[in-house]
Design a binder for these strands. Structure first.
Lengths: 346, 346
DNA sequence: TTGAAAGCGGTACCAT
DNA sequence: ATGGTACCGCTTTCAA
């Protein structure tokens, strides 16, 4: 005969998890009634409820996730999919903020956020399968590219989804900032400091954000735009930023202003400028984008565009939750404010 | 009658997911046979296999995760639990590396890593429930504290688990580095540069890493250890590091060496030193710990202890996988090498 | 208010 | 080699 609770002896060898059935037995009721209590339904006598609550504690009952998902046809979980190329993920300070923002929103709604990182072909396939397998009720996707199998899967499944950023061609909901307008705004501001040879280190031109920032820069410069002063790099990375700055300086030693496509890139550029003896902002005015931790820690602190990373995560999660509730996603996406913050680097 | 595949018309209203049953019908076999094919078992005729594979594609079948977990009693997933206090999570460059390392190991073994971030009381409770609900077959836990409910849950469940770092009192497997020895080593190195008034900014003294680093420092200094030159802060944070350095300098303007408990802390300290006109390393020798991105990007680059973050994640994941296979965890934990790397800051 | 029973989508055993 | 069937743990009618 099985004792209740604690006093079973020391070496308890992986006690089997208790089920509704066990609770029902212990409380002397049926499984149905136990289920009703667990799910807080009405029409349960006080007597039964008391007995069941006691039994739940005694046997240490916790509902089985899989069984519940199977019958309810929902998981009460939302996937957060990070798909950064290379190891950029670890460098990107925004991603953490976005994740925390999304987690907060989901947590408030009693959803579990489960994040899946895609770091290889194998991961892509596995994550796609998981999603199709009904692993989550919705998904927040960061940094997917247009041709991504995962993107295709969520579209085909029409799984409640929101993208952070706006991959071209994707029809799902998305939340982002006005990269174009903000890039133009900060470029104009840089222009207004009286610079005449302004370059841009453009990054991630396979993504909407990268393309839009470049377009905004170009628009701000107007006639003064010089294609030779644009140095494209593949990712928003410190290292590439440093290299790009070097290339730029070799090609055009007279640049006196630089718009880096992100703060990390700007930080890299700053290091090169320092190494090569250019003073910032005296000789060269430098501005970034993101207002990440980099911005405030650079010497001098970067003038940049504030990206509300936490807010983006939160908004994306809330969009997913709304879709789960059956509401239709806002067409055309949601734009959050991203003001210019002016510091010392320009 | 339901058409096969594509040509059902445009506005396909959330087509119901196909089940084994659908595949069985389409292929003219039983569900059992379909299952065998899906799971790559033997004893299936080529004829049946062909027909089923064709049917799977036609109906777009993907196995349901919940149903499979329920019957198999395993999920083929491992949880990666991040439990950083405050927003430190976004600041800690190690965490990303650890996560990527763990993901790589799990991915190789065809396991899905699902990461859960714990950012509030509510999260703690929810994550604990999920774990108890059989949501994952094992867990890698980063930065849990001793008294953590999640820690208790995994111990009670004896769920295959590995900690990154060694929370005191925890009996589960863990992987880490020799914080004590490494702290002593780098402190001795700093001492050898001829400094006479060496301070430490100690952090996270509620964690083993924090305590051990302080102990190593103390041991290295021996008689020269001065409690007044230890400034404790709560987290490994840049901001706190900057403030601590300021406090230290006020209390003891003659310090000429500082061991910061992490690179982030050192970076903060460096900023304060610069602001207050102390040259590094000329006036003050500064060393950090972690060898994170901070170390190489500080000006001057930090001398520090290399922490093999990716390796820690990988080793922890591999320990969990081994335990899932039924092997016993190594008692006493696993220590990875963490050599001193000497750069310009001291 | 409660119990009995069906069924969610799979897997696995047992005959055949 | 294959089909039939029981069952994983839970929720949800339907009757009583």
């Amino acid at each position: 005969m099985r004792g209740y609770g604690e006093d079973m002896g020391k070496a308890s060898p992986r006690r089997k998890r208790a089920t509704v059935h066990d609770v029902a037995m212990a409380a002397g009721v049926s499984r149905g009634t136990v289920s009703r209590v667990v799910n807080g339904e009405r029409y349960v006598s006080d007597e039964a409820r008391k007995a069941i609550e006691k039994a739940i504690v005694e046997v240490g009952y916790v509902p089985n996730t899989a069984a519940r998902s199977l019958v309810m046809q929902r998981t009460q979980a939302v996937a957060f999919i990070v798909h950064e190329p290379d190891r950029l993920f670890v460098e990107d300070p925004n991603i953490g903020e976005i994740l925390l923002g999304a987690n907060a929103a989901l947590s408030d709604a009693d959803y579990q956020m489960v994040s899946l990182v895609v770091d290889s072909e194998k991961d892509t396939a596995r994550v796609a399968r998981y999603l199709q397998g009904g692993f989550a009720d919705g998904a927040v996707i960061v940094s997917a590219r247009q041709d991504d199998p995962i993107t295709r899967v969520v579209e085909r499944l029409d799984l409640p989804t929101a993208f952070v950023g706006h991959p071209p061609g994707v029809t799902a909901a998305w939340v982002g900032i006005d990269n174009h307008g903000s890039a133009r705004a900060i470029s104009e501001r840089l222009l207004a400091t009286g610079r005449s040879r302004i370059a841009m280190i453009a990054a991630a031109l396979d993504r909407d954000s990268g393309v839009d920032r470049l377009a905004g820069f170009r628009e701000a410069l107007g006639d003064r735009f010089d294609p030779a002063l644009v140095e494209p790099i593949s990712h928003y990375s410190y290292t590439e930023g440093a290299a790009a700055m070097r290339a730029l300086l070799e090609r055009a030693p007279d640049v006196d202003g630089v718009f880096a496509a992100s703060d990390a890139v700007a930080a890299g550029a700053l290091e090169t400028l320092r190494e090569l003896g250019r003073r910032v902002p005296e000789d060269v005015g430098l501005v970034g984008f993101d207002d990440s931790a980099w911005a405030r820690r650079c010497q001098p602190a970067l003038s940049t565009v504030h990206q509300p990373a936490g807010g983006l995560g939160r908004a994306a999660a809330e969009s997913v939750l709304a879709q789960i509730r059956g509401e239709l996603p806002e067409l055309g996406g949601i734009l959050l404010e991203s003001p210019v913050v002016w510091r010392e680097s320009a």
